[in-house]
Design a protein around this nucleic acid. Structure first.
Length: 211
DNA sequence: GGCCAGGACACCA
DNA sequence: TGGTGTCATGGC
């Protein structure tokens, strides 16, 4: 699958962000949100000159919430960014780069202990910001592999992650590129179908919602 | 006006 | 362990 995607699309090393710190914020802000809205929030932080650990620490909660408002659920996300900043300061002296020295599963365990960081956000931060080999499972991954018949659709996050990590060499560049390939495919030729109210299947029934 | 978008969490049975 | 409601903006 990966080789065919690579042949079709070329290498795709990917996750938008000029710094590993920005990658972490993007991972939190994109929760259940279109990336275009995350870009608005990141741009607002950038134009305020607060897209850094030190500057965000000094920013009041209400100000932070106002700046990230375009990304949706902004009060909740402000609290989650704050929790991540506390964690980063406590565990890594505010340096995302320091996470790169961690054992992958240990880093994952620590990230999951932060309120507001779940499986996907933890893996995205680990893989793209800290360059640790953890496969990221997102809505795109599920959609593509359910359509292919590889997944049934009812698997847990960890189930899906194992499908990939049990079969692939533990390689950061491979995991990054594979995830990126899946995203490109999903946005290109594996578009979502309207929710079908007749059969109640989510994103599987191809009737266009008519049953 | 309704639906959806690169989730996570509290609450419930 | 699994299902449901909540958070909330912007684009189509």
């Amino acid at each position: 699958m990966y080789e065919r995607l690579l042949e079709r699309q070329g290498h795709s090393a990917w996750w938008p962000g000029e710094s590993s710190f920005e990658v972490c914020l993007g991972a939190i802000l994109t929760q259940n949100t279109a990336w275009a809205n995350v870009e608005k929030a990141l741009a607002a932080l950038k134009s305020e000159g607060v897209l850094s650990y030190e500057a965000l620490r000094a920013l009041p909660d209400d100000r932070l919430a106002a700046l990230i408002r375009p990304s949706g659920t902004y009060r909740i996300k402000a609290a989650r960014v704050r929790a991540f900043l506390d964690f980063l300061g406590r565990e890594y002296a505010g340096r995302v780069e320091a996470m790169a020295a961690e054992d992958p599963s240990e880093l994952r365990r620590k990230l999951l202990s932060v309120r507001g960081i779940g499986s996907e956000t933890a893996d995205a931060i680990a893989l793209y910001a800290a360059r640790r080999p953890l496969f990221v499972v997102d809505a795109y991954t599920r959609r593509v592999f359910v359509r292919l018949g590889v997944l049934g659709g009812g698997e847990t996050y960890d189930d899906v992650q194992r499908v990939f990590m049990d079969r692939l060499p533990s390689d950061v560049a491979l995991f990054q590129d594979y995830h990126a390939q899946i995203v490109r495919l999903a946005k290109d030729v594996c578009r979502p179908v309207p929710r079908c109210h007749a059969c109640a299947l989510d994103d599987v029934c191809a009737s266009g919602g008519r049953g």
